[in-house]
Design a protein around this nucleic acid. Sequence first.
DNA 1: CGCTGAAGCGTTACAACATAACATGTCTGT
DNA 2: ACAGACATGTTATGTTGTAACGCTTCAGCG
Lengths: 140, 140
Amino acid sequence: MQRALGAAEMRCAQAQERLTDPRRRVLELLLGSDGPLKAYDLIAAYGEAGEPAKPPTVYRALEFLERLGFAHRIESLNAYVPCRLDADGHSAAFLICECCGAAEEFEPDFTAQFAAAAHAGYTVRAVTLEARGACAACRR
Amino acid sequence: MQRALGAAEMRCAQAQERLTDPRRRVLELLLGSDGPLKAYDLIAAYGEAGEPAKPPTVYRALEFLERLGFAHRIESLNAYVPCRLDADGHSAAFLICECCGAAEEFEPDFTAQFAAAAHAGYTVRAVTLEARGACAACRR
DNA sequence: CGCTGAAGCGTTACAACATAACATGTCTGT
DNA sequence: ACAGACATGTTATGTTGTAACGCTTCAGCG
């Protein structure tokens, strides 16, 4: 996790962006969780001594983290996870377990989708994919 | 649109489900729109004479329509569209224009994703994909 | 150094989205 | 006609997300 924070710091410097306190704090909370976190979970957990953050504080940090690719929003859960992949693109794909709530990021292959998009005349900027099902542990 | 409503009626009968008034009305509104509709758009437009519906009326109808595959929710827009495809699966894929708000459904090819899921031990029940970009008209 | 403009933050208030819970109605089979 | 299941109406409330404003901080520059 220190490593992940350090890497984020680096990438910010490269991008001429700043990993300010609230941004760093929210990323820290995401990295420290073992599952997707809701915005209001982050708001509640924000203060070191238990005081919650104000919503815009967290939403602004999340917007930044998504923009830089440090976090992803999982639309079908209204929740957020830290990016676990190295690749620097703007696409995200998740396997979501409907039983235990785990969400695992994986490297998608959107070749077929890009072809379909091109055929329809669309230019794609970003793709998100959310597959719902059961993880190995829950399937047993 | 009459045809689509008729087809829905048929498929309900086959599935031993009922296309009741609120369900039919919401489907009608979705079919009559030229773009994704928000839940509260539906609520506002529900009454023939302008009176809005109560939220649960519309949300329950939407839940039914999604369950039968007559409509899809577009997570990244918090909006709903009627299903425009014949296929009867539970997967949905959209090309969403960030400029004009159009959302076009297409037939996805999830072979690669299913392979990735299997590799991770996941059993996939349903997949949704939302590609954001610019449509042909807006790209010009 | 001190100014300036841009980006970021804190705060208040509110808007948008969604559901719980319970009472009432309406179909279906017997 | 009755029971049970499913659907709806209604009230209230919970959850998620943003607008708008003023203040602070930081980097660039004369």
